[in-house]
Nucleic acid binder design. Structure first.
Lengths: 352, 352
DNA sequence: ATTAGCACTCGTTCCTCTTGAGTGCTAACA
DNA sequence: TGTTAGCACTCAAGAGGAACGAGTGCTAAT
C-alpha cells in the first residue's frame, strides 16, 4: 500500500484519534500542540488539520469547534496507525485462569467468556457457542413421546448433550425406535453426527426394510438441530456509560436492537481463514449499528475455526485494547475448549 | 376494613392517580375541576388535597407544583379504588391463540409468554418456567463421560428433558451404570422424579449391594438439578420510554440490575394459595426497585401452582391494565401447559 | 516552511426577566 | 358550615442576552 499521508499528518491524525477516543470531545490545535509527541505550533497543526479535513479524515461539528475523526480516519487508524498492543502476562494469565475454572460445561465457558469480555472492555460482548458439526456420537436415545413424535437425546464425545423433537414416520413403532437406538449405539458411535444418518442407511435397510429412507431423513433432523447455536450477549447496559448514548432515545433503539436477539448476525463467522474483522460505523450491515464499531474474532479448536465472538462499542472505541483482549480471549477459549473436548477417543471417518 | 377516607376524598384521589399514571406530571386543582367526574371548584379541591397531603397520600415536588400520589396512595388505589378491569374477549382470545401456537416445547411457551407480556403492557416482564418437582420419570440414561463422572439424561412424562452431570462414586463401573439405567427404566417409570432415588434404594441393595446408598445419593442430584428453573426476562428497554428513566444514570442502574439476572427473585412464588401480589416502591426487597412496582401472579397446572410471572414498571404503572393482563396470561399459560403436560398417563404414587 | 498575531465564529454558561401553573389564606356567600 | 371567589405569593421553566473561551482561517513576519 502506498503511503497515503506523510509522516507528520499521520502523527497528527493518530494524536487526534487517540485523544478523541479518550475524551469524546472535538480536538483542537492548541490541545495537540501541548502534547509531548507533537512539537509543532498550533498554527502549523491547524494547516495540517485543514488538509486532513479536505482529505476526508476529519470532520468539524461546527466552524468554531475542534476536529473529530471520520470513519475513514478510524479505518486508517485501525489498519495502519495504532500500535497493536498485547496484553501483559498478568492480564492474559487472569483471563485464562478465570476461564479454566469453568471447565464442566461448554455453556458455562461461553457465558463466562462473554461476561469477562464485556467486563474488561466495558463494551457489549457477543459470544457464539462452538459449532458441533464435527462432534462425534457417543450415545443416543430415541424415546417415543406421543403418537408420531419422538425425542432424540444425543450425547457427543465432548460431553455436550442436545435433545431434538423428531417427527416419526408413520408405521414406525416404539419397538422399531428401540431397535434403531441399539443399532446406533452399537455401530455408529465415534462417527460424526452429520454423517450418521447416511452411514446408517445400509444397516437400516437390513433392519427395517423399506422405511429406511424416511427414518434416515428423520435422523438427519438431529444434525440439523445440532447446528443451531446459542449466543451470549452481555453488557448492553455498558453503552449507557458513553456520551454517545446520553440521549435516551438513542440508547433505547440500541438496546431494543440488542433485545431482538439478532445481533449475533453481526458476529457471524468470517470466511474461513480470516481471524479478525473490524467493521466501523456504516460498514456494518445493520443500520442500527451505524454509530458503532464491531470487532469480531474467531476461535479455533484443533486448528479448525468453530465459533466467533465480538465486541460492540461506539465508533470511538478503544480499538487497540479491544483487539488485544479479543486475541487473548480467542486463544484462551480455544485452548480451554480443546482440553474439554479432547475426551474424544475413537474417531471413525466416513469414507465418501 | 373501615372507611379511611370519605367518598369525595376517594374520588379526588382516584382522579389524581388516574391522571398521574397517564401523564407523569404533577396534578393541579384546576386540572381536576375540569374533569367531568369531579364537580367541585378548584378551591374546594385544594382544601381536600391539602388534607390528603397531610394524611400522607399526596406529595408536593415543590410548593408551586401540583400533587403527586405517594406510595401509600398507590397502595390504597390498588386495594380499594381502581376498577378491576377484565380484558375484552377479543384480547384474551388473542393471547390464548398466540400461546397455543407454541405447543411443542415448554421453553418456547414461556418465552412467548414473556414476550407478549412485555409487548402488551410495554413494561418489563419476568416469567419463570414451571417447576418440575411433580414430573414423572419416563426415561433415563446414565452415560459414563469420564472416569468418575456420568451424564444423566432424564425425560419426563411431559416430554421435557434435562441432563445433569453427576459424580460417580468410586467403585461403580460403566456396567453398573448400565444396570442401574435398565433397572430404573424397567421399574421406576411413572414415579415422581423426587421420589425415585428413595424408592429405588431397596432394589439397588439387591443389585449392587453396599454401594447402594452412595448411588442413591448420586441419583438424588438429578432431582436437585431438575428443580433449577429458567427465567425469561423481556422488555427491559421498554423502561426507557418513561420519563422516570429520562436520566441515563437511572436507566443504567436499572438495566444493570436486570442484566445481573437475579430479578427473578422478585417474582419468587408467593406463599401457596396467594394468587397475585402487588409490591409498590419500597415494598420491594431489592433497593434497586424502590421506584418500581412489581406485580406477580402464579400460574397453575392441574390445580397446583407450578410457577409465577410478573411485570416490573414504574410505580406510576397502569395497575388496572397490568392486573387484567396478568390474570389472563396466568390462565392461558396454565391451560396451555396443562394440555402439553397431560401426556402423563401412568401415575404411580409413592407410599410413604 | 513555520509561526506569531489577530479578527472572527459560535457553542456554552450564566445571568436576569417573564410567564404561568400552582398554592394557601381570607373573606364572602348559600 | 361547607363552598367558592379573589388575591398575594412561590417557584420551575423558558426566553433573551451578555460574557466567555475554545476554536478557526488568514496574513505577515521569521
Amino acid at each position: 500500500m502506498t503511503q497515503l499521508l506523510d509522516v507528520r499528518k499521520m502523527n497528527i491524525l493518530r494524536a487526534i484519534v487517540d485523544d478523541y477516543i479518550l475524551t469524546a470531545a472535538p480536538v483542537g490545535s492548541r490541545t495537540l500542540s501541548k502534547r509531548d509527541d507533537i512539537e509543532l505550533s498550533p498554527a502549523t497543526i491547524r494547516n495540517e488539520m485543514s488538509d486532513l479535513t479536505e482529505l476526508g479524515f476529519l470532520e468539524q461539528p461546527h466552524t468554531s469547534a475542534g476536529r473529530v475523526p471520520s470513519e475513514k480516519a478510524y479505518r486508517l487508524y485501525v489498519s495502519n496507525i495504532m500500535d497493536r498492543a498485547r496484553l501483559t502476562d498478568e492480564e492474559s494469565e487472569y483471563i485464562r485462569r478465570h476461564l479454566e475454572q469453568r471447565v464442566s460445561e461448554v455453556g458455562d465457558v461461553i457465558r463466562e467468556t462473554a461476561r469477562m469480555l464485556s467486563g474488561i472492555t466495558n463494551y457489549t460482548s457477543v459470544v457464539q457457542s462452538p459449532k458441533m458439526k464435527n462432534a462425534r456420537l457417543k450415545h443416543i436415545s430415541l424415546i417415543p413421546v406421543t403418537e408420531g413424535t419422538a425425542l432424540a437425546v444425543v450425547v457427543t464425545n465432548s460431553g455436550s448433550t442436545s435433545s431434538t423433537m423428531l417427527t416419526v414416520p408413520a408405521g414406525i413403532t416404539a419397538q422399531d425406535l428401540d431397535k434403531i437406538t441399539h443399532l446406533m449405539n452399537d455401530r455408529m458411535t465415534g462417527y460424526k453426527i452429520t454423517d450418521v444418518h447416511r452411514t446408517l442407511l445400509p444397516l437400516l435397510r437390513e433392519e427395517i426394510g423399506e422405511q429406511a429412507d424416511s427414518v434416515a431423513e428423520m435422523l438427519g433432523g438431529i444434525s440439523d438441530d445440532l447446528s443451531k447455536r446459542s449466543v451470549e450477549v452481555v453488557g448492553a447496559a455498558n453503552m449507557l456509560d458513553y456520551p454517545e448514548y446520553a440521549d435516551v432515545s438513542k440508547a433505547k433503539s440500541f438496546l431494543s436492537e440488542i433485545e431482538k436477539g439478532e445481533i449475533f448476525k453481526e458476529v457471524l463467522p468470517n470466511e474461513d481463514g480470516v481471524e479478525m474483522t473490524i467493521r466501523i460505523g456504516a460498514e456494518n450491515d445493520n443500520p442500527e449499528l451505524k454509530d458503532c464499531s464491531v470487532i469480531t474474532v474467531s476461535y479455533s479448536v484443533g486448528g479448525e475455526q468453530v465459533g466467533s465472538m465480538g465486541v460492540i462499542g461506539p465508533t470511538r472505541m478503544d480499538y487497540s485494547k479491544v483487539v488485544a483482549v479479543l486475541k487473548c480471549m480467542s486463544e484462551s477459549l480455544g485452548s480451554v475448549l480443546s482440553k474439554m473436548l479432547k475426551g474424544s477417543e475413537s474417531h471413525k471417518e466416513l469414507k465418501e
